[in-house]
Design a binder for these strands. Structure first.
Lengths: 193, 193, 193, 193
DNA sequence: AATGAATGAGAGTTCATTCAT
DNA sequence: AATGAATGAACTCTCATTCAT
C-alpha cells in the first residue's frame, strides 16, 4: 500500500528527530531555553520550522524530550539497578562517573544544570527527574548508614551537594578545573574516611 | 508649588531607583530574566514603563545593576579587604557566612545562580564578577598554601566548587537541606584537618 | 496480483470520493469551514492528505462539491420538474418537505445555512445555487398569482423568507422547536387562506 | 503628575477603541470571523497590530465586545423594560422595529446572523445572548396567551422563526426584499387575526 | 492509487523600546 | 520627573499544498 515502506518512514523520522534534538541541545545550551527561537533550532537542524512541529508538539516538548533522554542516559550509566548494596568500590565508581560523564557531554549537562536553576522551567521537570533519581538517593543513604554515620540522610544530601558543586565547576571551566583532585578528595573523605 | 531643591530631586531618584531594582529582583527571581517583562517590573515598582527607561537604559542594564549591587554586598560582608593573612577563625567565618548570607536573601542569590548558568547572560557579567572576586580567590590560595597543601590553587578551586554546591542546594531547598551539617563538614575537612 | 479492471478502479474512486465528502461534511459542520483542517478531513475519511488532493484540487473544491450535491438532492426531492402548475396539494407537500428534509440531514443543512451567511463563501456558491432554484421561485410566483395575490413576486419572497426562518430554527434547536405547528401555520396562511 | 490629563487619555482610548471595533465589524462582516486577520483589522483601523492588543486581549475579545454592544443596542431599542403587558400597538411596533433596525446597521446584523450559525462561535456567545433576550421571549409568550392561543410558547417560537427569516432575507438582499409587505403580513396574521 | 514528510506563508500574540505630551 | 499610547520586530505555532517515493 505504501509507496515507502514503514521501515523507510521510521528511518526518516528517527533521523530527523535526532537532528532536531541535537540542534535544540546546541541552541538551548548556547543561549538558554527562553532566548532560543524555534527558528534557530530548525535552521541548525536543517529543516523548516513547520517540520519541527511535525515531530514535536511544542518548543517545551523538545526540551522535555531532551531532559528525559539525558536522565535515561545518566541512570543507565550509573547502573542504578545494581545499587542494592553499595560496596566501597562501586561507590568510588559512582563518584568517578558522576564527574566524568558530564565532561563527555558538556553541552547536555550544562543545559541540564542551567535549566535546573530556572524557576519557571524547574517546575516542569523537577518532579519527574527527582522521582527517577529517588532510588539512587536511597542507595546512597543506605551506604552512609552502613558506614556508621549517625544521620545518613543528611550525609547523603551534603554529599550530593558537594558532588553537584564539583560537576558545576567542571562544566563551567573544563580546561582548568582540577577534576582529578576533586575526585580524590571526595573518595578520600567519603570512602576511605 | 515651590520648585524642588536638588536634594529633594536626588532623594526621589534614589527612592525610585531602589523601588525599580527591588521590583526587578522580585520579578526576575519569580519568572526568570527572559520571561520577565519590563511592564511587570514597572507595575510592581509602581511606576510607568517610561520612567523605568528614565533610570535605566534597558532591561539588561537593570539586571547588571542588580548583579553589581549583589557582588558589592557579598564582598562587603566577606570583609574582603581584611584577607591578607587568613586565620583559621576567619576562614571558619567565611564558610559560615558563605552559607548563611544567601539564605538571608534567597531571591537575590537564586537569581544570581540561575543567571550564572545561562550562557548568554554569563558572558555579560562573568568577567566583571570574577575580576572582583580575584582577591578573595587569592587569599584562599594563600591560606591553603600556609596549611601545607602541595597544590593550593587546585585546593582552592575544589573548595570553591564544594562551597558552591552547598550554596546551591541550600537555595533550592532551604527548608530541608542540612546546612549546619554541611558547614561542619567543610570546617572539619578544611580547617581542622 | 492481477491488474484491476477499469470497473474496479472506478468503484474505488467512487468509494473514496464519497468517504472524503462524508468526512468533510462532518468536520465542516462540527467546526465550521475555516476552522476545519484538511488533515482532519483526511483522517476521518481514513485516507492520506495526499490522496485527498488526488480527488479534489483544493479544500474549497471539496466544499463546492458538497454544496452542489446538496442542492441536487433538494431539487430532486422537491420534484422541481413537475412544478408547472402547482396544485394546493403539491404546495402543501412542498412546505412539509421543506421542513422535514433538513431535519433528516441536519448536518448538511446546518453547514449550508451557516455558509450562506458567510460573505466570502457566499459569493462562491450563491450565483450557482440561486440559478438552479430559479424555476422553483418562478413556480411559487405563478402559484401565488393564481391565488389572486396582487403582488405575487413579493408574496413569493415573503413566503421564502418565512420558510427559511422556520428551517433555521428547526436546525438550531431540533428537539424543542414546534416544527409541526409551524407547518400548520404556513399551510393555513398560504394555502387555506 | 500626568503629562496628559486623565481626560485626555480617556478620550484617546475611547477614540481608538471605537476605531478598532468599527474596523473589526467591517472586516468580520466582509470575510467572516475566522477568515479575518488581526492584521487586516488593525490596518483598516489605522493602527498597528500591537496597539490592538493594548485595547483587546485577543481577537475573540474584539468579537465579544462587538456582539455585546449590539445586543445592548437591540434591547434598548426594543424597550425591553416596558414589556410587562404588551398592547397590540406595542406589538406592532416591535415587529416594525425588528425589521427596520437591522436595515439601519446591516453590517452589524449580518455579522450577528452569520456568527449565530457558526458552530464554534455559537457556543461562545449564545448563552449570554439568549439569557439577555429571555425577558423578551417571555413577554411575547404572555402576549400570545392573552390573545387566546392554546399553545402560546409554541406560537412565540414560530413567530420568532418567521421574524428571523424576514430579517435574514432583508439583510441578504436589502434592495429587493419587500420588507414592508413582510411587516404587513406579520401584523395581519399575529395582531389583527 | 497512495503515502506522509516537507514546506512556506501567514496566523495570533508579546514586548522592549520610543515619544508626544 | 513622569505618563502610557504607540510601534515593529520577533515570537510560537498552524495548515493548505506539494512531491519524492
Amino acid at each position: 500500500m505504501s509507496p515507502r515502506t514503514t521501515e523507510q518512514y521510521e528511518a526518516i523520522r528517527k533521523e530527523r528527530s535526532t537532528a532536531i534534538l541535537d540542534a535544540a541541545l546546541y541552541v538551548f545550551a548556547e543561549q538558554g531555553y527562553h532566548s532560543s527561537s524555534v527558528a534557530a533550532i530548525a535552521k541548525r537542524a536543517g529543516v523548516s520550522k513547520g517540520l519541527l512541529y511535525n515531530y514535536f508538539s511544542s518548543k517545551e516538548e523538545v526540551l522535555k524530550r531532551l531532559m528525559h533522554d539525558l536522565v535515561d542516559y545518566a541512570l543507565e550509566v550509573l547502573e542504578i539497578e545494581h545499587m542494592d548494596q553499595l560496596t566501597d568500590e562501586r561507590f568510588e565508581q559512582i563518584i568517578a562517573k558522576s564527574i566524568d560523564i558530564p565532561l563527555q557531554q558538556p553541552q547536555r549537562w550544562k543545559l541540564f544544570m542551567s535549566l535546573s536553576m530556572q524557576q519557571d522551567v524547574t517546575e516542569l521537570m523537577l518532579r519527574e527527574v527527582l522521582g527517577r533519581f529517588a532510588p539512587y538517593m536511597q542507595a546512597l543513604s543506605t551506604y552512609f548508614a552502613a558506614k556508621g554515620y549517625d544521620d545518613p540522610i543528611a550525609m547523603m544530601r551534603v554529599f550530593s551537594a558537594l558532588l553537584d558543586g564539583v560537576q558545576m565547576h567542571c562544566l563551567l571551566d573544563p580546561e582548568n578545573f582540577p577534576a582529578e583532585k576533586a575526585k580524590e578528595f571526595l573518595i578520600q573523605q567519603f570512602v576511605k574516611q
